[in-house]
Simulated assay, not measured.
Amino acid sequence: MSGKKTFIVEHLDPELGPWSELEYIAIAKESQATNTAFILSSLPDGFRVPTTLQDVEAFTAEKRGVEELYAGKKEKVCLLDPAAAKDLCPEDGEAFEAFLFGGILGDDPPRDRTSELRKKGFEGRRLGPKQMTTDTAVRVTRMVVQDKIALDKVSYTDFPELKFSQHESTEMPFRYVADKDGNPIMPEASS
């Protein structure tokens, strides 16, 4: 079952915040570049999909939830869940066709919003002990199930410090995938 993978973010907020928008754009663009699909599901009535997302072919906005989208195929959906008993592994790319994320994943401190999806009975996998942003969680999952990189072989940077000026910086309280230079891969700010 190594066909095209689908990454689903079950949107759990009534609106779309600016940081989430940047993360969703990053997921959509990476999905396009890697021949995967990105579905933003459970969108409330009146939800405004940003033009930058509408323009990406790999992206689909859905009012339906994952239970309706995968009715009768629940076993094909893997829930990325910090409380799961098993870690995600490359073989999971053969077992599952869709990977489900509960947005917003980047809460600090975590509020276990994944519990809303856990109750629906999807089989779960962990991405390790540290909290990730939504785009990072999707990126790591794609690397493991599509690129077949073991979870412990993914290069990370934890809690990076972002410097805005000589006297101003902030520490991001999340784990990120590191690029070839060891810098965190983050969404690009919109122009």
Rank of each mutant, 00 (worst) to 15 (best):
Met1Ala: 11
Lys4Gly: 05
Lys5Thr: 03
Lys5Ile: 00
Thr6Asn: 09
Thr6Ala: 09
Thr6Trp: 07
Phe7Ile: 04
Phe7Gln: 04
Glu10Tyr: 07
His11Thr: 13
Asp13Arg: 15
Asp13Val: 07
Leu16Ala: 00
Gly17Ile: 00
Pro18Ile: 01
Trp19His: 04
Ser20Glu: 10
Leu22Asn: 05
Tyr24Cys: 14
Ile25Val: 15
Ala26Arg: 11
Ile27Tyr: 02
Ala28Gly: 08
Ala28Asp: 03
Ser31Phe: 00
Asn35Phe: 01
Thr36Val: 07
Phe38Val: 00
Leu40Cys: 14
Ser41Asp: 13
Ser42Phe: 12
Leu43Asn: 12
Asp45Ser: 14
Asp45Lys: 13
Phe47His: 08
Arg48Val: 14
Arg48Pro: 00
Pro50Asp: 14
Pro50Ile: 08
Pro50Asn: 12
Thr51Gln: 15
Thr52Val: 14
Leu53Glu: 11
Gln54Trp: 08
Asp55Ala: 15
Ala58Thr: 09
Ala58Lys: 11
Ala58Ile: 03
Thr60Tyr: 11
Ala61Cys: 11
Glu62Ala: 15
Arg64Cys: 14
Val66Tyr: 06
Val66Pro: 05
Val66Leu: 04
Tyr70Trp: 15
Tyr70Met: 14
Tyr70Asn: 10
Ala71His: 09
Lys73Asn: 14
Cys78Gln: 06
Leu79Glu: 10
Leu80Gly: 01
Pro82Thr: 05
Ala85Gly: 03
Ala85Ser: 15
Lys86Cys: 04
Lys86Asn: 12
Cys89Arg: 15
Pro90Tyr: 01
Pro90Phe: 07
Glu91Asp: 15
Ala95His: 10
Phe96Asn: 09
Glu97Asn: 11
Glu97Pro: 03
Glu97Tyr: 09
Ala98Lys: 07
Phe99Trp: 01
Phe99Gln: 02
Leu100Gln: 06
Gly103Gln: 05
Ile104Ala: 09
Gly106Glu: 07
Asp107Glu: 14
Pro109Phe: 08
Arg113Cys: 11
Arg113Asp: 12
Arg113Val: 13
Leu117Met: 13
Arg118Asp: 13
Arg118Ser: 13
Lys119Ile: 01
Lys120Ala: 00
Gly121Arg: 08
Phe122Lys: 12
Phe122Gly: 10
Gly124Glu: 07
Leu127Pro: 02
Gly128Asn: 05
Pro129Met: 10
Pro129Cys: 08
Lys130Ala: 08
Met132Leu: 05
Met132Lys: 07
Met132Tyr: 06
Met132Asp: 02
Asp135Phe: 06
Asp135Ile: 03
Thr136Leu: 00
Ala137Glu: 04
Val138Glu: 01
Val140Asn: 03
Thr141Arg: 02
Thr141Val: 01
Arg142Trp: 03
Met143His: 02
Met143Trp: 02
Met143Ile: 01
Val144Asp: 08
Val144Cys: 06
Ala150Asp: 15
Lys153Ser: 10
Val154Ala: 03
Val154Tyr: 07
Ser155His: 10
Thr157Arg: 14
Pro160Glu: 04
Glu161Cys: 05
Glu161Leu: 08
Leu162Asp: 01
Leu162Ser: 09
Phe164Ser: 08
Ser165Met: 06
Gln166Glu: 15
Gln166Ser: 15
His167Val: 09
Glu168Gly: 00
Glu168Asp: 13
Glu171Pro: 00
Arg175Tyr: 04
Tyr176Cys: 01
Asp179Met: 03
Pro184His: 04
Pro184Ile: 00
Ile185Lys: 03
Met186Arg: 09
Met186Gly: 02
Ala189Tyr: 13
Ala189Pro: 07
Ser190Ile: 04
Ser191Met: 11
